[in-house]
Design a binder for these strands. Structure first.
Lengths: 252, 252
DNA sequence: TCAGGTATGTGCGCTATAACACGTATAGCG
DNA sequence: CGCTATACGTGTTATAGCGCACATACCTGA
């Protein structure tokens, strides 16, 4: 069963390519494991590898000392880490941390540049994704400024679930607080309310989404807006089919 | 005197190009006036022209109904409006409004695409500027979330002055409030304190910066960080020489 | 089995800002 | 010259989230 799911999960950007380009790109990639908590890229430092997650997900986090961190975007199998490479700049203005373990295709900076020469469609896809990322940044900014903790928490859980490919994933309150740029105890209170209303269930870092529909109602519209922005340029990620698979498994 | 200043103010991105490319680009541009309040581009709609301001400045504003607007970046003679064009996408995920009147070089979308084919250095410069814009977005996001009204107001005034090429410019409290995503009366209070401390002086929309050094101290570090991010990739904009000129004029 | 780390629950006082409301002054127009 | 819109000043109440502090529950390993 589990292998069945694995084989269905690919990276949507790669899937999106014509076969020729896809094969060329993959011939330069190697399969790596994304381990929870790994920092793939430090804030404002260059990177040597780019990652196309297939499962698991990566957070983009800004740091503005002496303040808490603040998450600006999430990268799962619908995107990639290091897309600024199409600008010729192997830097990302944020820290990239693995938030959900999984697997990814990895390629070196130099090799991608070579591949890009021969793959116009890849180039164009990455440019579109970069644009989407900019949209996400501006949504996140406004969301963090105007929306309240419970709405933002709901959104974050939904986005994580979309990318975790599981109803259950590992997130402590402290971690969520760092992503949302708020106090840990604030998250505890908001999550407590959600648990009382049976939207989620958690214990010592293991969060389980029990009522996704209700969670979508609590969330701010930024969640839907993000999905729409993505779909407009790059189409529907494979999210839905995976959800169906998961639901079949989810009640054993 | 005033003409002397005018002739010294150019667009830094254009200045940055080798002569050959600069002349080719300019041969496709026309000179236009940026009138205060003009909306050059609506939120999430395509644009037909790109602008390289020489004086005056343009704000990039996100809108998340039903909330107030929130400014994410400012474009003056150090940048351009429509840089997403290097991604092949003539859209900007924000509204663009003229906040300070001035003049700009304007070029059509199709023409720029032609010119880009022949100008590798232009392409690379625009890519660098796009990267800088992304950095600005993430700084603005964190700044709006963590920093307080007075700090943010100070930063905004400094950034405006840098791009207005004048110690005095037109900004009502309501306008500032919309940029900062806060209440109008909050701005009134913060600006009142600054006026009492002789940092600024204002009356019915005309704001005059009287003590720039002190204003820089009140501002959050995001102001300096923005400048640094720009300088790292594209060097020092012509800001300083202009400041000197202005100061000579400033005390008649 | 006990200690110590990790995760979560809860409370208290404080501050910034929201929402709303109303008062005052100035410019510019008829 | 006076009207009116615009710009600015001020106040009152409510609340979300902060900083800090401490209590409780659970896991894990010596």
């Amino acid at each position: 069963m589990s292998t069945c799911v694995e084989s269905n999960i690919t990276n949507h950007l790669i899937e999106h390519l014509p076969e020729q380009e896809r094969l060329l790109l993959l011939s330069h990639c190697e399969l790596v494991v994304l381990q929870f908590g790994t920092v793939l890229c430090e804030h404002n430092e260059g990177y040597s590898y780019l990652y196309f997650p297939m499962s698991g997900f990566i957070s983009l986090v800004t740091k503005l000392p002496p303040h808490k961190p603040l998450e600006m975007g999430v990268i799962g199998n619908e995107g990639m880490l290091g897309v600024t490479m199409v600008l010729g700049l192997p830097t990302v203005p944020m820290q990239a941390v693995v938030q959900g373990k999984g697997t990814a295709w990895r390629i070196g900076v130099g090799e991608l540049q070579q591949v890009l020469q021969q793959c116009p469609q890849l180039r164009s896809t990455l440019m579109q994704y970069l644009f989407i990322l900019m949209q996400q940044l501006s949504i996140s900014a406004a969301c963090a400024h105007f929306h309240e903790l419970d709405q933002r928490l709901a959104r974050w859980l939904l986005m994580s679930q979309d990318r975790a490919h599981s109803n259950e994933f590992h997130l402590t309150h402290q971690f969520l607080a760092d992503m949302l740029g708020v106090r840990r105890s604030g998250v505890t209170v908001a999550a407590g309310v959600m648990q009382q209303n049976n939207l989620i269930q958690y214990s010592r870092g293991k969060i389980n989404i029990t009522n996704r529909n209700a969670l979508e109602k609590v969330s701010c519209t930024c969640y839907q807006k993000s999905l729409d922005d993505y779909k407009r340029l790059l189409g529907q990620p494979s999210r839905d089919s995976e959800r169906r698979l998961l639901t079949e498994q989810g009640t054993p």
